[in-house]
Simulated scan of single mutants.
Amino acid sequence: MSLKDMQKDVHTWISQFEEGYWHPLSMLARLTEEVGELAREVNHLYGQKPKKEEEPEGNLELELADILFIIGCFANSMDIDLDKAFDKMMEKYRQRDSNRWTRIDPENND
């Protein structure tokens, strides 16, 4: 699924409801909440804070998908094409950071 398709799916879902998209500040708060939930799961799995026995098992992929959903909402509400934005961002990284780290030698990468 492309980002454009994801944005269409999000829009189809949101369009069912009279409330529509939230205001940008509310969406930013929601994004922050979702990133916090992801951080909590990562900390439980890889950090030094194990879950309590009574806490339900988390799911990293669903936490990441929740973040994608709210990003889709945010972009749609501001008429941002995430495919184009992503392409621009990757070009920025390709130019700015192309020599920043040690490249893997393709001949030695089996």
Rank of each mutant, 00 (worst) to 15 (best):
M1T: 07
M1S: 03
S2I: 05
S2M: 05
L3G: 05
K4S: 14
D5A: 04
D5T: 06
M6I: 11
Q7V: 10
Q7C: 01
Q7T: 02
K8M: 08
V10R: 03
H11K: 13
H11C: 03
H11Y: 08
W13A: 14
W13N: 03
W13T: 12
I14N: 00
I14M: 03
Q16P: 00
Q16G: 15
Q16V: 05
E18I: 12
E18Y: 07
E19V: 06
G20W: 04
Y21N: 03
P24K: 14
P24Q: 14
S26T: 13
S26F: 13
S26K: 11
S26Y: 13
M27W: 03
M27Y: 03
M27S: 01
M27P: 00
L28V: 02
L28M: 04
A29L: 11
A29N: 11
A29H: 11
T32F: 10
T32E: 08
E33I: 07
E33S: 04
E34S: 02
V35Y: 11
V35G: 14
G36D: 06
G36H: 04
E37V: 06
E37Y: 02
L38Q: 04
L38Y: 12
A39F: 05
A39V: 03
R40M: 10
R40V: 14
R40S: 08
V42I: 13
V42P: 01
V42R: 10
N43E: 05
N43M: 03
H44Q: 11
L45P: 01
Y46C: 07
G47H: 12
Q48P: 13
K49R: 12
K49S: 09
P50Q: 06
K51H: 07
K52H: 14
K52T: 02
E54G: 05
P56G: 01
P56T: 11
E57N: 10
G58S: 03
L60N: 12
E61T: 09
L62K: 14
E63V: 10
A65N: 06
A65D: 04
A65Y: 13
L68V: 13
L68Q: 15
F69Q: 15
F69H: 14
F69C: 09
I71K: 06
G72K: 02
C73H: 02
C73M: 10
F74H: 07
F74E: 02
A75E: 01
A75R: 01
A75P: 00
N76M: 06
S77E: 07
M78K: 11
I80R: 01
I80A: 07
D81T: 08
D81L: 07
D81V: 02
L82A: 00
D83F: 09
D83Y: 08
D83G: 03
D83M: 13
K84H: 05
A85Y: 09
D87R: 09
D87Q: 08
D87V: 10
K88C: 08
K88R: 07
M89W: 05
M90S: 09
E91S: 15
K92W: 07
K92A: 15
K92H: 09
Y93H: 11
Y93M: 12
Y93N: 05
Y93L: 12
Q95D: 15
Q95F: 11
R96H: 07
D97N: 14
D97R: 10
D97K: 01
D97E: 05
D97F: 10
R100T: 07
R100H: 08
W101S: 06
T102S: 06
R103T: 12
R103W: 05
I104L: 03
I104C: 02
I104N: 04
D105T: 01
D105P: 00
D105K: 15
P106E: 12
P106N: 10
N109F: 15
N109K: 04
